[in-house]
Nucleic acid binder design. Structure first.
Lengths: 325, 325
DNA sequence: CTGAAAGCGCTAACAG
DNA sequence: CTGTTAGCGCTTTCAG
């Protein structure tokens, strides 16, 4: 904890009461110009930094928001947390970010940590468990972003989500239009987004008069250790000439395998866009998520809920954009 | 702020004193098994979460460390902050991370924020200004990582740095060994690392019997907006057949320009490694920084300093690894 | 315009 | 083994 210069020291040095120091430093108008000046000078000379904990405990709010993210190394979440921070900062809120590594246990302790830090609200990208959020959160406002846990339908929380069905359908449809006859899928292990993306994939096939085929619907392990082998399975054994990839981490593994397979006419598509896809040798079509809007909307809803706890929960869907390279 | 169930509520419901609740919940041995059980049950039934602010203010430490990072979207810093978090978490510390966007003003408010949050210590990747850290930090321990501000030499802070000179020299030497006759440099705008990397570059040239030439030493703008043009300048106008690039963000712009220039025999090298360099069509040699060690070492030093404020400051240099693709 | 005093929620003596 | 009390640093009535 920092050096011990407190409001009391400043008060003593300035020859005024603690109350006056407090007022002077918080730009309270009911204090003489001179007094304010003197107090401010002395405070900065002494290197006084108000103790935010003491303040928060007194005013019963921290002006801090908690953010729970499953994997900060995943570029999508890096950008999402940045978007959330920017949006929060625009509204004058600080942010404490916690990683869960997709682990329910870590998510639970993250939640506890944030609650103990008395954050004014929490933004959660859920690790997907059947956690009883309402029981843990109590009266702390929260909004779910990107992923919705299974039982959250009837809970009092907002959800800010991407339209995974539409986004996936658009991409798979594009692959088919570009000539793919048989499009496989390597989906992610994350239940919420994966099931929506699978639906989008199947709708695209059906709309094109094709029959979904379980033999070319694969699911990656959480650590993606089986992706390269699945890529071969779908593209060689199953003779797919199109492939939809469930997220950017899986895509990286697929790209790692492709050169071995030498398939110049493969139609490749996937969720999540990355700048460096510009440098890839093969064409690729991606669903770029509206990350900035996701962050801003989540913050807007959370702050609204903090301001008015009776606000009714909403589910908001934002659309992904299809990008062809 | 969270629902208002406090230690007092638990005490009342359990028919004991607040002190006993506190003891029971903090596994203090001096409390009867039965009482502890009862208290724990009641606490969890009530959905009690201890108020960490109140606790911290009382015990005069937060068990939280602050981390100041210039750009969380830069992959190097994403990984560095993750490494720091992991190391901190291993020692039971929480982390609050703040972005500065390389702005001195934002760095100043980040520092203030962390100080007001009463963090036990701070890890700083400096935006590079002449900030008087000692004046701001007071007695809060801090360590500098990756970059050292100009005036920190004689201040009481540890520095954990990469050996930029050696790392750069190794790469440029490699480029020359591979046949480059004239190696240019596009350096970053960050003064600390840039000047060290320039030194390494020049040492490599000199060691190879070449004369450094200011005409092929370029510096990128902070937003890299002039990098593509510089790439052309060095590779076409100045006829460089080798190029050293100061960091990964600049490298991305260089890579964006290269296809236009059609230089199949270019010897390309740069600081910072990225996984996706695997997918590049041309060869590239990079300096991979020891990020995990950087984070762990910084945390080790910081915790040591927290434990013993009289610890003498040290400067630690870690080596980068040369990777050829 | 300023001061005195109370109290936010918690833990650490000190008693018992 | 448990209760009483004081106090961490701050803001906010309530008086003046």
């Amino acid at each position: 904890m920092t050096g011990k210069v407190t409001i009391k020291d400043v008060a003593k040095a300035a020859g005024v009461s603690e109350a006056t120091v407090s007022r002077a430093l918080s730009h309270n108008p009911r204090v003489k110009r001179d007094t304010r000046q003197k107090v401010q000078n002395i405070a900065s000379n002494l290197g006084y930094h108000p103790n935010g904990l003491a303040r928060s405990i007194r005013v019963q709010q921290t002006h801090t928001l908690g953010v729970i993210i499953p994997d900060i190394l995943n570029a999508f979440f890096t950008h999402l947390s940045r978007a959330i921070e920017d949006a929060a900062s625009r509204s004058g809120y600080d942010v404490v970010l916690v990683n869960t590594d997709e682990s329910l246990a870590k998510e639970a302790s993250a939640l506890n940590l944030l609650l103990e830090k008395q954050v004014d609200g929490i933004i959660i990208t859920s690790a997907g468990g059947p956690t009883d959020y309402a029981a843990i959160l109590g009266s702390t406002p929260a909004v779910f972003v990107d992923r919705m846990p299974p039982n959250v339908q009837d809970t009092p929380y907002d959800r800010v989500l991407v339209d995974n069905v539409q986004g996936t359908q658009a991409i798979v449809t594009r692959l088919i239009q570009q000539g793919a006859q048989r499009v496989g899928i390597i989906n992610s292990a994350v239940s919420f987004t994966a099931s929506e993306r699978l639906t989008g994939y199947q709708k695209a096939l059906t709309a094109a008069g094709q029959e979904p085929d379980a033999a070319i619907e694969a699911t990656a392990r959480e650590d993606n250790s089986n992706v390269q082998q699945m890529t071969r399975q779908l593209l060689i054994n199953q003779k797919c000439d199109g492939l939809f990839v469930g997220d950017n981490t899986i895509m990286e593994e697929v790209l790692r395998k492709l050169p071995d397979l030498n398939l110049p006419h493969l139609q490749l598509g996937g969720f999540d866009d990355q700048d460096w896809f510009d440098f890839l040798p093969q064409p690729i079509v991606t669903a770029k998520q509206p990350i900035a809007e996701l962050g801003q909307t989540a913050i807007d809803r959370l702050l609204a809920k903090i301001a008015d706890p009776d606000l009714l929960p909403k589910e908001i869907r934002l659309s992904a954009t299809t990008i062809s390279r």
